[in-house]
Amino acid sequence: MSTTPAQITEAELSVLTAELDALRNAPVLRNCLMPGCLRQYDSLASLSGKTPSRPEWSSAGWKMLGSGTVFPAGGNICPDHADLIGAHLPRRHSPTPDGWWQARCTCDTWVSPLHRWHGVLRALWEEHLLETAGLLPPPA
């Protein structure tokens, strides 16, 4: 059995309108690249100039990382980690003629070994970043 528009009460219409508004204004959350960081911002609110539905989802102070790094699609960095990651940007080098990949950190203290799959480079750089931040002990 279906309900006609004439049968919808004001209270039901109010609930439907609120649900529709929630769907239209759903956040599009982006995460920080720092391993273990749980901070997020609402990119849709940021792009549209609106205030995010939660204050902790503000884009104030966030930085964007472009392509050409170990993150092929780029990424986002929260204000808490902007300086650390800014000092340790990972740059992915083009593959060697035989198809091997390598990355180098802008700190010039870390270079990855050559790998056949470029996806390994992100995990290796994250390990370097965590060691630099003192969140992982140095290798024995």
Rank of each mutant, 00 (worst) to 15 (best):
L29C: 01
A103Q: 05
R122C: 12
S59H: 07
G49W: 10
H81V: 11
L136W: 03
R39E: 15
A11K: 04
W100Q: 15
L13Y: 12
G68H: 05
L114Q: 09
S112M: 00
H115Q: 10
C105W: 01
S58T: 14
A11Y: 04
Q40F: 09
E19M: 12
P137W: 05
Q40W: 04
A87P: 00
L44A: 13
T96E: 12
L16H: 02
T96S: 15
E19D: 14
S14N: 02
C78R: 02
F71N: 13
T109V: 07
A73F: 12
P90Q: 02
P72L: 03
R122N: 09
R30T: 13
W110L: 00
P139W: 11
T51V: 12
T3I: 12
L16W: 08
C105P: 00
C105N: 00
L89R: 08
A22M: 03
P55A: 08
E127L: 12
R30L: 13
G49S: 11
Y41S: 04
P90V: 11
W101D: 00
K50N: 15
A22D: 07
H93Y: 06
L20H: 13
V28S: 05
L65E: 09
G74F: 05
L136Q: 03
R122A: 15
L124H: 10
G68D: 04
T109G: 07
S48K: 10
G68N: 07
W101M: 00
G75W: 06
T69W: 04
A11S: 07
T3Y: 03
C32I: 02
W125Q: 00
H88T: 12
L121H: 02
Q102D: 03
H115S: 09
N25S: 14
H88Q: 08
E19S: 10
L130F: 06
A73Y: 12
T9Q: 08
L124V: 12
R92Q: 14
K63T: 10
L129C: 13
G74A: 08
G66Y: 01
D21K: 12
L84R: 02
D98E: 15
A82H: 13
T109C: 08
W62L: 00
